[in-house]
Simulated assay, not measured.
Amino acid sequence: MEPDAITSEWLSTVLDADVRITGTKRIGDGLVGMNLRLTIEAPAGSDLPASLIAKLPSPDPTSRATGIALRNYEREVQFYRQIAPTVDIRVAHCHYSEWHPESGDFVLVMEDLSPAEQGNQITGCSAEHARIAVLELARLHGPRWGDDSLSHIEFLQKRTSGDAPALQGMWTMFVPGFLGTYSKYLDAEGVALVERFGPRIPDWIEGRNLPLTVTHGDYRLDNLMFESPAGGYPVAAVDWQTPGQGPASADVSYFMGAGPLPEVRREIERGLVDDYLGALAGYGVHTDGDEFFRHYARDAYGGVIMAVVASQIVGASERSEAMFAAMATRHVRHCLDLGSEALI
C-alpha cells in the first residue's frame, strides 16, 4: 500500500467511523517498513485517539523486496492477529491489519505510542532502560514457555539443524561485503571471530536446547518505545516482523549485546539475567541460572549474524551504516567478553 492511498475515506471505512486525516508525517528510521503518524479528527463522543500510526512497506525497493521475500510483512500482520492477544508484553494496539498474499503488500493501523520516545541503537541505553527492557521480555516469553502448539503456527520463524546449510550459505555470501564495509570498525580480534564462525554454524544451531517460546527476533533499542517526561508506557515493543518460536535466551542476549554500551553491560549483565529469570518464575517457569546463562553466552552470536546478514540486504544509508557498525562492534565484543566461541 502506498502512502497516498491512506485517505480520510479509506481510514473511515477500515475504522467504521467518520474520521478526517488532518496531518501526515513520517516517523522513525524503519529499514524494512515505513511508519506514518496520522493526525485525525473523529466524531464527537468517539473513543478514537487524536493520532494513529499507519505502517506500510518501505519505499526503498531493496528493503521492500527484502520484506516481501523474508515474509516480514506477513509475519507482522499475523503476529498482531494471532500472537499478541496471548502474551503480556506491551505492544501497540492494532486497530486494523491487511496483508495481500499475491503481492506481499500490507498495512497496519496502530495505536500511537507517543509521547513515549524511541530508543537509539547508535547511542546505546542506560542501565535503567536495559533493566526495564529485559524484564519486559519475561512478559513475552513466560505466557507461552514450552508451548508445543507454537510449532503448528506456520508463520513463526523456527531455527533448527535443518536450517544450517541455508544459514551457512547466506553467511558465506554476505561476509565479504560485510567485512568490506565494517571491518574498519572492528579490531583484528573481532574480524578474526567473524571469519572463524561460518564453519561452526551447524554446531551452534545444534547446541540450542532450552525449551522454546515466542520470541521477538529483533528486540533492540530502535524497536522499543520508552516512557518520556511527557508520559507513555514504561516500555513497549514494536516492529514484530521477525516473530519466532525459539529459545528465550536469544532475545535476552541479542538485546544486551548491543543495547547498553559494553562497559555498562559488563556491570549489570549477570545480575539482570538473574532478575529476568526471577520475573519468569511469576509464570511458573523455573530454569537453572547457570544453564540459562551458558545459552545466553552462546546466543551472543545471534547478534553477529544479524549484523552481517541484515546489513547486506536492506537499503544503505548513512544512518544504517552507523547503526550496523554499532551493532557489529558491540555484538562481536559481547562474544569475546563471554567466551562464546568456546561454548559452541
Rank of each mutant, 00 (worst) to 15 (best):
P243L: 11
G67E: 05
N223M: 08
R75A: 13
A54Y: 03
E136M: 07
S149H: 14
S311P: 02
A127P: 06
A300H: 05
L108G: 05
R20N: 10
A281F: 04
A248P: 04
L224Q: 08
R64V: 03
G271I: 03
V77S: 03
D163C: 11
A297C: 14
W171M: 08
A279K: 07
P199W: 04
R71L: 06
D299G: 00
C335D: 05
F324N: 01
H95W: 14
I132M: 05
A325G: 12
N120Q: 09
H331Y: 11
I132W: 05
G146F: 07
A316G: 00
F293N: 06
G198Q: 07
A166H: 12
G217S: 03
L11I: 12
V14W: 09
L156C: 11
T7F: 13
D4F: 10
G302E: 01
Y254R: 01
Y276Q: 06
E76Y: 00
L280V: 07
G339F: 14
A322P: 00
R333N: 13
R20S: 11
E2I: 15
A279Y: 05
H129Q: 15
A42Y: 09
P247L: 01
Y219Q: 00
A192E: 15
G169I: 08
R265F: 07
A54E: 08
P61R: 07
N120I: 09
M170S: 13
